[in-house]
Design a protein around this nucleic acid. Structure first.
Lengths: 185, 185
DNA sequence: GTCTATAACCCGATAGAC
DNA sequence: GTCTATCGGGTTATAGAC
């Protein structure tokens, strides 16, 4: 694999685990097996490299969500598939994790790909909910935008509760509780 | 205010904003207006001080939640009051924020107060849901533990989405979506 | 109980050789 | 394109004076 690719992937992994504040250029170089000069030849610094890594992670999140949300079956089945798909729950969300980082949130260039990723996710979920309403799966009273935000929040919050507990159980409970609520009409 | 108190409160504030990894003893000393020697006289180091600060933040979260959850009114009204109470949404949750920090999660002494806080919250929410079931507000089919986890997750996930978006809107949508779902029977 | 001095190392970046 | 050297500053303490 080329150096640039190794740098981006190593940065993705470190941002996921330690955030922007907790990730040093030296750690990236070690993980990517690249020298100091090499990293600064390809990128102007930590921020530019992080931007590339966050954009990549956002694209990966969209692709993974689209696998379930764009699949076959009823709207309800696709949302349940999205909620229930295999996840490394204790590792958390590679994009959502960055919302906790003060320097990502403070820098418009770094926050933009995070914001866009969740905007896309909420919009895509809202589309599926709207389809479900048209198919008679959900009551007319259900608001697609609100429901979409709730679904995305349960996933992100489920990660938080699971990591806090050191167990995947709270994530699974939260998701199951939401599925119960969306099934009861 | 005494030095120890200033140190704990400054550490709470910095952990909230920057996490454990992003908070240095020097920054704490500056914020607390305490010298190096002073800090190390009262605490063995950063970890012990952080432990005291996290325990304090956990107690504050419990007290704030109990204000709504232990108030008057129906179960449904108390849960809505909890969800809708005034929050500094873009600042996030002072306890939930720590679930993102690798060193908090890796150190049992630091993770324990985070875990206990959310265990308490989920338990307390489950009690209120169970009361609501007995009062006929919620259907018999509703599982209190699952529902409690969903409520806690929507709040934590709402913070994540709001910080990502740079706007409180996603938080409000997610909460309203949950209230809608819990009202529809 | 608080001060200053010092330790050994890491931080993010730049310079210039190769 | 990658290397090593260097920069000025920060990190988490420890030591010992006051």
């Amino acid at each position: 694999m080329e150096t640039v690719e190794r740098l981006i992937r190593s940065t993705q992994e470190l941002l996921w685990e330690r955030g922007y504040v907790g990730t040093s250029p030296k750690a990236i170089q070690r993980a990517a097996d690249a020298g100091q000069g090499s990293m600064y030849h390809h990128f102007t610094g930590k921020a530019e490299l992080a931007k590339a890594a966050i954009e990549r992670s956002g694209a990966e999140l969209r692709a993974a969500a689209e696998e379930q949300l764009g699949g076959a079956g009823t709207a309800s089945a696709r949302i349940s598939a999205y909620l229930g798909r295999e996840r490394d729950v204790l590792k958390g969300c590679q994009v959502g994790r960055l919302a906790a980082d003060p320097e990502v949130i403070a820098d418009p260039d770094l926050r933009a790909p995070v914001a866009e990723t969740f905007e896309w996710l909420r919009g895509r979920l809202a589309e599926v909910v709207a389809e479900g309403k048209r198919a008679g799966e959900y009551p007319d009273s259900l608001d697609p935008e609100r429901t979409a935000a709730t679904v995305a929040a349960v996933v992100q919050g489920g990660y938080v509760l699971a990591r806090a507990a050191g167990s995947t159980e709270p994530f699974e409970l939260a998701v199951q509780g939401l599925v119960d609520l969306m099934g009861a009409k």
